[in-house]
């Protein structure tokens, strides 16, 4: 009964909407520190952020993801996010099953923090996002980050863990594209229902789209 009540009212939606809204602000702050990002036209900066925000949040959240119990444990056990918390925010297993699989795979790469940060920057500076105008400039910035990442792995990532590591990291970016699409599909359903879209934040509505407007 409690599950049904939780589900129908999406009891976790307000909290997760706030968490995602806060995270989007952090992604924007991070993007502004990427060399060259601020030199892009404002419209391209906006296109890149809107299309990559959810992917960077999924990447960033891997730090708190734990293989022990397949949850995002942020600090003490009071701040532990389980799959059930995300379903009670309106998402279903079509997203969560591949998302957990993605988190497990990423965790097992045991990335250095430098590699993790570079991967998020490379994810943001993807020239193939729909609506990008100056794809050549975005591509040149991404290429530079990719070269830095490959050099870092060669010089600083010793031992067996580094074998094919760059290729595995790029594969994670591909996985994120399909997670992004599934998230968008489920978000669209959610945002069509006024009783749920009213619980989202202005920034979430702006970044993920506000069907109502």
């Amino acid at each position: 009964a409690s599950m049904n009540i939780g589900f129908s009212q999406l009891s976790m939606l307000p909290h997760l909407a706030d968490l995602v809204s806060y995270s989007i602000q952090k992604v924007i702050g991070f993007a502004k520190m990427i060399p060259g990002f601020r030199d892009l036209a404002a419209d391209d900066q906006i296109v890149l952020l809107k299309s990559s925000a959810i992917e960077v949040i999924m990447l960033r959240s891997n730090q708190s993801f734990t293989l022990e119990d397949m949850t995002w444990t942020c600090g003490s056990d009071d701040f532990k996010y389980r799959i059930s918390d995300v379903t009670q925010a309106g998402h279903n297993m079509d997203l969560l099953e591949p998302l957990v699989k993605f988190q497990v795979g990423l965790k097992k790469l045991n990335l250095h923090e430098e590699e993790h940060v570079l991967l998020m920057a490379i994810c943001i500076l993807s020239p193939d996002r729909p609506g990008v105008q100056d794809t050549a400039l975005v591509e040149s910035l991404q290429d530079r980050l990719s070269e830095i990442l490959q050099s870092y792995i060669r010089c600083r990532h010793p031992g067996p863990g580094s074998r094919l590591l760059y290729a595995k990291m790029i594969q994670k970016l591909t996985d994120l594209r399909s997670l992004n699409e599934e998230h968008s599909r489920q978000y669209r359903c959610l945002s069509f229902q006024p009783q749920h879209s009213m619980q989202l934040t202005p920034l979430v509505l702006e970044v993920f789209g506000n069907e109502i407007s």
Partner: peptide, 18 residues
């Protein structure tokens, strides 16, 4: 209309992060 679009994103991009 275009200008009004993404007003929050533009603000967060332009504001000076401490």
């Amino acid at each position: 209309k275009k200008k009004e679009n993404n007003a929050l994103l533009r603000y967060l991009l332009d504001k000076d992060d401490v």
